[in-house]
């Protein structure tokens, strides 16, 4: 199982109060977790990925065990701590005012 922490606005959109927990078969990667996330919460469709370009939205980053996994590690197997739900996968929106 993978725990995913969403930014506030996406929790609002998905109508969840806290982190979400995902269980899915196959490779335990960020890409697979995001695919499962959109299946479980269709309201999040396209909010993390731009569907047209297939790219992560520029104001969103992925953090894993205090490391930035936003670039080139989307298909890398997540660490045991994340796969065992001891640490969450953090989906973080850029901090900005307004």
């Amino acid at each position: 199982m993978i725990r995913v922490e969403l930014p506030y606005h996406l929790r609002l959109l998905a109508r969840v109060d806290d982190e979400v927990r995902l269980e899915f078969d196959g490779p335990q990667t960020i890409r697979a977790a995001l695919t499962e996330l959109e299946l479980r919460y269709p309201a999040l469709n396209g909010t993390i990925w731009d569907k047209a370009s297939g790219k992560r939205r520029p104001f969103i980053r992925f953090f894993v065990c205090s490391q930035d996994w936003s670039h080139d590690r989307l298909d890398t197997e997540l660490p045991e701590l994340v796969r065992a739900a001891a640490e969450p996968l953090l989906i973080v929106g850029a901090v900005a005012g307004g």
Binding site: H9, L10, A43, T47, I48, R57, F59, A94
Partner: peptide, 8 residues
């Protein structure tokens, strides 16, 4: 919509 999360 949102500059962070696109269109809904």
């Amino acid at each position: 919509s949102s500059g962070w999360f696109g269109q809904v």
